[in-house]
């Protein structure tokens, strides 16, 4: 069959291209252009708001990979991810299983309660949580002391050993509702016939879930893990409002590191937008790499 020339194909599909155009323009302006510019800026010695910007090649990248604080923040970001995602996935699944039960009449109420933190502004949650975990009259410490679980108040956000787990806990609480919703959506794709057939075959309790339901929702699990993992690497507003990366870098994840170097510090010297862009590009590539790995894993799992 004779193939139409490209120009003709485009002309024939002109309405499709027209409808795609606004989205393409917006994507170009707000995604492609900033990404491109951050790559370019990463090659400059530039504060970000002076006219003077010197091209220095890969020097910013060299400096970043030789900075121990960069790597500390890099590793801390992954600690955050590995510490929160499994908890959210498992907890979210358990809650979804309970709330998916049609017999539970109060399921919509519990669903709403668990989802409520998701729709609350994250900066507000961050600030409120600094009061909740305050060692002086904070409700968390009051509870611990009134139940004799501790004899002295704990400085949850001021102690380098407790700060990251505390922030991770708040993160899990804040976003658990959305994980639960993902799982509910996945569970609702399981046809009732499957449950009925499983029961007839004598599969009940954990056997039903492990051997029947879980394999069905596994592809969803991969997507949920992927979304949660990327989400856990983007926690800037929560950490900035709760600890700003302190004390002494103990909760400084990559986004806080980038922000700190991109702006004037408390010590008051010129910011380094070029360097911050280099750290950001490096970080972006690392996240992309992980996403691709997960994508490959997902594809492999689907084949199985």
């Amino acid at each position: 069959m004779h193939k139409k020339p490209l120009s003709k194909q485009i002309y024939d599909a002109r309405w499709c291209y027209l409808f795609v155009l606004p989205c393409s323009i917006l994507t170009g302006m707000f995604v492609i252009y900033p990404i491109g510019m951050s790559w370019y800026f990463s090659l400059l010695d530039w504060s970000g708001f002076t006219k003077e910007a010197k091209f220095i090649g890969l020097q910013n990248y060299y400096e970043a990979v030789n900075d121990e604080f960069f790597w500390d923040a890099f590793i801390r970001s992954f600690i955050f991810m590995f510490g929160t995602v499994p908890v959210k996935i498992v907890l979210g699944f358990i809650i979804a299983v309970f709330l998916n039960n049609q017999v539970l009449k109060l399921a919509p109420f519990f669903r709403t309660v668990i989802f409520m933190p998701v729709v609350t502004a994250i900066a507000i949650i961050g600030i409120v949580m600094t009061f909740v975990f305050s060692p002086f009259n904070g409700p968390a410490n009051k509870f611990l002391m009134s139940t004799n679980l501790t004899s002295a108040p704990i400085d949850f956000l001021g102690n380098p050993d407790t700060v990251l787990p505390t922030v991770m806990g708040v993160y899990v609480w804040k976003w658990l509702g959305i994980t639960m919703m993902y799982w509910l959506a996945a569970l609702q794709t399981v046809p009732q016939d499957v449950y009925d057939a499983a029961k007839i075959d004598g599969a009940e309790g954990y056997r039903l879930w492990i051997h029947i339901i879980l394999p069905i929702v596994l592809p969803f699990a991969i997507v949920i893990i992927l979304v949660e993992a990327v989400g856990a690497l983007n926690v800037f507003p929560l950490i900035e409002t709760m600890t700003a990366g302190g004390p002494f870098f103990s909760s400084e994840v990559m986004e806080i590191y980038i922000f700190r170097t991109a702006f004037v510090t408390d010590s008051g010297t010129m910011p380094r937008l070029g360097y911050a862009c280099a750290a950001g590009v490096f970080w972006g590539v690392a996240v992309l790499f992980i996403t691709v790995l997960q994508g490959l894993w997902m594809r492999r799992t689907r084949r199985i």
Binding site: T130, F133, S134, P135, F136, G138, A152, P153, D155, F156, L157, G158, N159, T243, G246, P247
Partner: peptide
């Protein structure tokens, strides 16, 4: 020292 100085 006040116990919560590092978080304020």
């Amino acid at each position: 020292a006040f116990p919560g100085v590092m978080s304020m």
